[in-house]
């Protein structure tokens, strides 16, 4: 498993485990008792990307860009307004997650799980580890009693926690350990796809690397596919195979991690990359400081949503919204000027 996994995926045509097409999630803004709708917050607007089986796909952007909402729509924690989410677990027929209801949705969630950002609020403080990690197993009637304990012990061991701790409550654990508990819970049903919503951003830097390594080890061991939501580009560079960059609810660039970091195609990606802290103090001079606020998803600017903050903006950017286009290299970018600009990456 370990030596065939990643290499085999790279050489053959990878299967798309998840194909997201035109995903949108709009929240209505209402006023008064009659709840008259006065505006829409386009938290996620026409998002299209796919995920290959076995890879780690990064979903990056500033806070408020819609990456968490996208992640929650994928799992149907939120119901998307429009779009298709085709999930192909491999062993059964692909399904459109966006259209599933009731029972079918419950069946699907065995294959798709989530790791939460906040290791404190995502674990019920009144439950022991056995209850918490065993919750999905009980809910799906997989095991109970002695068998449940055995399985939970196995899961705890796999995330580096001692099985003897299963009678303890979450308050006895540190943030990093709690996050491991959350990971164990997500893995309880042997999912194929795990959406990790900023799993390390609430952790101390020292624990971050440990947790990231654990995620990487588990991926290899259990041939998992990750969607890794993050605003921390150094983490993304470390763990992701491909990256989707979002801005104001839209995808602005999709590329392999190496390509994206060495030669970004979208000015927003360039600005994000320039904000990554560098060990070399001289390099810090090149930092692009974006002016203005992130575009308001309830009242998006005309044309390209990024134009008010873009140093390269031309008239066309103010007038026409650019489509997400595939370049000759196969990379996707949403910018009128993508072919003309030469943007600075890192390394």
């Amino acid at each position: 498993m370990t030596d065939t996994g990643p290499t085999a995926i790279k050489t053959t045509v990878p299967r798309r485990i998840l194909d997201v097409r035109g995903l949108s999630k709009h929240f209505p803004v209402t006023v008064g008792i009659l709840r008259r709708e006065v505006a829409k917050i386009r938290a996620v607007d026409d998002v299209t990307f796919h995920v290959h089986a076995g890879e780690t796909l990064g979903l990056v952007g500033e806070s408020g860009c819609g990456k968490t909402t996208t992640g929650r729509c994928l799992l149907r924690a939120l119901d998307p307004t429009a779009g298709e989410i085709i999930f192909d677990p491999g062993d059964v027929e692909p399904v459109d997650v966006a259209a599933l209801k009731g029972k079918a949705l419950k069946v699907l969630r065995q294959d798709m799980q989530m790791v939460f950002q906040d290791p404190f609020s995502s674990l019920n403080p009144r439950w022991t580890l056995l209850d918490l990690v065993g919750e999905p197993l009980v809910a799906y009637g997989v095991s109970r009693g002695k068998a449940l304990e055995t399985r939970v012990a196995e899961l705890l061991r796999s995330v580096g926690l001692r099985p003897e701790y299963m009678r303890r409550y979450p308050h006895a654990f540190s943030g990093g350990e709690r996050q491991r508990i959350g990971i164990a819970r997500a893995l309880a049903l042997n999912p194929k796809l795990v959406v990790a919503d900023e799993p390390v951003s609430a952790l101390d830097v020292s624990v971050r690397a440990q947790t990231l390594n654990l995620l990487a080890d588990l991926q290899e061991e259990l041939s998992l596919t990750y969607i890794f939501i993050s605003h921390d580009l150094s983490v993304v560079q470390h763990i992701c195979d491909r990256v989707v960059v979002m801005y104001s609810g839209r995808v602005v660039e999709v590329a392999d991690t190496d390509d994206l970091f060495s030669a970004p195609l979208h000015p927003y990606t360039e600005a994000l990359l320039s904000a990554v802290p560098k060990p070399n103090p001289d390099a810090a001079k090149n930092r692009i400081v974006l002016k203005g606020e992130i575009a308001d998803p309830a009242n998006a600017p005309s044309g390209c949503a990024f134009h008010p903050r873009c140093t390269y903006a031309k008239d066309i950017c103010r007038q026409q919204a650019p489509p997400l286009t595939t370049m000759e290299s196969g990379r996707e970018v949403r910018c009128h000027l993508a072919a003309e600009l030469t943007l600075a990456g890192v390394n």
Binding site: A77, Q117, S122, L123, E135, P136, G182
Partner: peptide, 17 residues
């Protein structure tokens, strides 16, 4: 708003439970 409620929902736990 608590994440653990959403986590329970995603774990397939029924509404009553």
């Amino acid at each position: 708003e608590e994440d653990f409620i959403m986590a329970a929902r995603l774990s397939g736990t029924s509404q009553t439970r």
